[in-house]
């Protein structure tokens, strides 16, 4: 038993391939036989992944889901930023550049709207719960953008660690919701063509959310959504502690 565990830990990435393969198989099986294909296999698999992450998080008290259990640390390599970005870029192979150029304006607009709206909505919610200072409101708004913009903005503005933690949680809620919700909301908002996917990436911004959500909806949309989403966090980190903070401070008077 110990020998087996040692081999699996030492070869973590290979064990991760095996686990994910099993999860994919079970998910596609469930998709075909339990929902007769109505609910896409990849969507089932992503939800299964999130459930595993929850179990892992409760079990270890860590922040990396299953990857905090040494036996499953390989999942952290397989699903880490390096291989994720590698796979995202590979989906762009064969994409028609003119399609992206045609939707460029929509992509830029969606980024600006997506960032400002997330900050505004987050700040209003913060205000409703009694956070009346501009720093806390901006930080929570930043969290509503993505869970990276939250702490970056909070640290830059000197927000309390409690507010920074809340902003990270808000960003995680958004990311998980986008992963799970995209296949359900897609038919209602016309998310079935490249242009809509570019708007989607810019409006949502969470790379992991968009990557997971579009994978569960239609893999062909991934490169378009990822193309705009990749600019979101950087722009959010740029606008949050500057323009948006000054706007909120002007409104709240300090």
């Amino acid at each position: 038993m110990e020998l087996l565990a040692e081999v699996l830990i030492k070869n973590g990435l290979l064990f991760a391939f095996l686990i994910v393969g099993a999860v994919m198989w079970a998910s596609y099986y469930a998709s075909h036989h339990l929902t007769s294909g109505r609910f896409h296999g990849s969507a089932v698999a992503i939800i299964a992944g999130l459930v595993l992450a929850y179990v892992g998080g409760v079990f270890t008290g860590g922040s990396k889901g299953m990857a905090d259990i040494p036996l499953f640390a390989g999942l952290g390599v397989m699903g880490g930023a390096m291989l994720r970005d590698f796979a995202i870029v590979s989906t762009a192979y064969g994409v028609d550049l003119s399609e992206i150029r045609r939707s460029g304006l929509v992509g830029v607009l969606s980024l600006i709207l997506g960032i400002f709206l997330s900050f505004i909505v987050g700040a209003i919610i913060a205000l409703m719960f009694g956070y009346t200072d501009a720093v806390s409101m901006t930080t929570l708004g930043a969290g509503a953008a993505t869970y990276i913009v939250g702490p970056v903005t909070g640290t830059a503005l000197g927000a309390s660690s409690e507010v920074v933690a809340l902003s990270v949680a808000a960003g995680l809620v958004k990311s998980v919701l986008v992963m799970i919700g995209t296949p359900f909301i897609a038919p209602l908002i016309g998310l079935n063509n490249p242009k809509a996917a570019m708007a989607y990436g810019g409006l949502m911004g969470t790379t992991s959310g968009v990557a997971g959500g579009l994978a569960a909806t239609d893999k062909r949309l991934v490169p378009y959504g990822a193309m705009t989403a990749t600019f979101y966090t950087g722009l959010g980190c740029l606008l949050g502690p500057s323009v948006i903070y000054f706007m909120i401070r002007a409104l709240m008077g300090g």
Partner: peptide
Amino acid sequence: PIVVAMASTQNVVSAVGGGPVA
């Protein structure tokens, strides 16, 4: 598959337990 692995390493516990504001 890589996205599924990514999903399994998300901080879902914090997302669920962040309280009403988050």
